[in-house]
Amino acid sequence: MLTTSEKEQIEKEIRQVPVKKAACIEALKIVQEHRRWVSDEGIRDVADILEMSPEEVDSVATFYNLIFRQPVGRHIILLCDSISCYVMGYPALHRQLVQLLGIQYGQTTPDGRFTLLPNPCLGTCDHAPALMVDHDLYRDLAPAELESVLAKYT
């Protein structure tokens, strides 16, 4: 069930658009902000408030890579794997992350702390390689710096 604050936020979005359905992505974002990921129940909650079917909502949700339909950790690492970072050595960052965290892309550390995901170009190619942890951008990264970056997130 939607919490009061989720509901309020979604209703605010609904007022901005000509048809309820148009608030679908916003509603998914709101649910994800509150619950970190969107479960089947989350899909049904969004469907109910927007008067859509779960199928309609999930069709949208599963299209976008940053709507998480599986549980994720407390912190999300988005490692840029696009071209400038490729040239500037993201594979080394990737290897180091895999080693430090003991997980592959798409997985979450057993303690639920990190989920590691590849992400297309972060738009900071002049400072490649780069990654984001949650809302923070890290640029010009060397593998050796990773440990201290991760240490900031508990």
Partner: peptide
Amino acid sequence: DEMEPGTFKDR
């Protein structure tokens, strides 16, 4: 939306 790999001007 600037997502074209290698592009960072709009940012």
